[in-house]
Nucleic acid binder design. Structure first.
Length: 203
DNA sequence: CAATGCGCACCCG
DNA sequence: CGGGTGCGCATTG
């Protein structure tokens, strides 16, 4: 793996992107593509298309997490989350992390096993016990997630099972039922297909 | 005008 | 509860 100066730029890009995300998050704003573009653009003048492209590369490389939240995509620095250590042995059940991965990836057609694998590894500090094959453990965990209806399988793509939400059979100890904001409420289900709409509004 | 700051409602574990 | 998130609006340059 020889490092050319071209690849150095992608590392630099990754830094800029992560800086931008940190900055935006500090401002309590959503690290969307547009905001990241303008945050970077304000320092080094680049075209949005270039920034978006580099951002996608960083996502593919796992340097940046693309998550689905409240009906839109956000980007996160994966490193703060890596504080979470997960010991993985042959019998470890990762089905919860699997469903979390599928949900947060938010891919409307479903996510591949590979995507899930990447996400789980990027968003956690996985500590493999000796003689343990992570991929195998993950495969079993996916199976468990399917059996417990956390996720569903369509072809080769895994999707989150929406009908599984709210097993809130808890006690009614004076729960203040707050009126929900209707516009935000949409996010969890019906938005799934909205995400499919490609928002091509480049200049 | 765009960029930034921030209170607080919301969500999820 | 506790911590993360980001809308909506105020403030600043």
């Amino acid at each position: 793996m020889r490092e050319t100066s071209d690849e150095v730029t992608s590392v630099v890009w990754r830094e800029w992107i992560l800086d931008a995300i940190r900055k935006i998050r500090f401002q309590k704003q959503r690290p969307s593509i547009q905001r990241i573009c303008q945050a970077i653009g304000s320092h080094h003048k680049f075209h949005e298309d270039i920034v978006a492209e580099k951002l996608e590369e960083a996502v593919e490389a796992g340097a940046v997490l693309k998550v689905y939240n409240k009906g839109l995509h956000s980007y996160k620095d994966p490193r703060p989350m890596q504080c979470r250590r997960v010991n993985v042995g042959k019998q470890t059940d990762l089905s919860r992390l699997v469903s979390k991965a599928v949900r947060e990836l938010g891919e409307c057609d479903g996510s591949t096993f590979k995507s899930i694998e990447n996400y789980v590894q990027q968003s956690n500090n996985v500590i493999l016990e000796s003689d343990t094959d992570f991929k195998l453990v993950l495969k079993n965990s996916v199976k468990i997630a399917l059996e417990t209806n956390l996720i569903t399988l369509e072809g080769k793509l895994y999707k989150i099972n929406n009908s599984m939400v709210s097993p809130t059979k808890k006690r009614r100890s004076g729960s203040p039922k707050k009126k929900l904001d209707e516009s935000l409420k949409v996010s969890h289900f019906n938005i799934s297909f909205l995400k499919c709409v490609k928002v091509d509004f480049f200049a």
